[in-house]
Design a protein around this nucleic acid. Structure first.
Lengths: 154, 154
DNA sequence: CTAAATGCAAACGCTTTGCAATGTT
DNA sequence: AACATTGCAAAGCGTTTGCATTTAG
């Protein structure tokens, strides 16, 4: 666990970036919330617990930096809010999202199902895929279960 | 062609919405630029040629309305700008995007390649897919060709 | 010591909203 | 006439930036 942090530290330093307490705190928060897709504001609030003096701008700058280093992945889902995800090591992300239109929950498909499609794109379009993004909108299993029960409201 | 407009008119009116000149002009612009992915600002400027008195807010409101009626589809691609696409009739959109990281060009794959994946999601996750979005980032054929030529600058 | 990084607050760009005026049915 | 719709300008939101100050290397 600590090795993850160290690795990211190294990655920062090897690129000539300074290792500030704010950056470390931000990375720590990202590691501790790897499951979630945190917005900058989310990260900010969590980081403030560790490093209360931090400013929101610094969080944005750090997330941007980590994004450039491919340590985190910056995503958006239709709502105008960027969300940040730690990348598993330095791999391409390659997971897909299931976003429930009813409750807003987002779950993930961790496998990458797009390999064959990417080959096809290379061949048919001469387009070399570097990354992709696949989101599905729909109704999750939980909501479908709830919908089958008699409704109380609205 | 005119029938497309009429159909949308009907759709508006059948839902109790009034058909104002501004709305008609907006729809007309969308029809005439079906190929493109226009931003609200884009639409605004094009509509002003037909209906110079229109306000940007009205364009936003109209696009939002059309979006609710599933006449257009509201999309975003990472940059904080919503783009709007007329839906072919009332079908799901089902096309995918190839976004070049080098020149920013976006082209489309018009087929839907995700049918089998959506079935799999239904079965493995109990999630009913209503819509999806698939974007590929990479290097387009044109840029690859350019990259093979000797570089002049930078 | 020096350049990079920070915090703050102001500016930003896109989008939404309040409201009085207007227009459709 | 009644109500939806409009235009305008102001506000809202997440994000970025300018700048003086601090801090890591």
């Amino acid at each position: 666990m600590e090795s993850r942090i160290d690795k990211i530290k190294q990655q920062l330093q090897s690129q000539g970036y300074k290792l500030t307490p704010q950056r470390e705190a931000t990375v720590r928060v990202l590691l501790e919330n790897e499951e979630d897709h945190l917005s900058a504001e989310d990260v900010f609030m969590l980081v403030k617990d560790i490093a209360p003096e931090i400013g929101l701008a610094t969080v944005y700058r750090t997330l941007e930096l980590l994004s450039e280093l491919h340590v985190v992945e910056k995503m958006n889902f239709g709502d105008g809010v960027a969300r940040y995800d730690l990348r598993a090591d330095n791999n391409k992300h390659h997971h897909h999202h299931l976003i429930c239109l009813q409750c807003g929950t987002m779950s993930e498909i961790l496998e990458d199902w797009l390999g064959p499609l990417e080959e096809r794109i290379e061949q048919e379009y001469g387009f070399t895929v570097k990354d992709h993004r696949l989101d599905f909108q729909g109704i999750c299993a939980d909501c479908k279960a709830k919908n089958d029960q008699p409704k109380i409201e609205q």
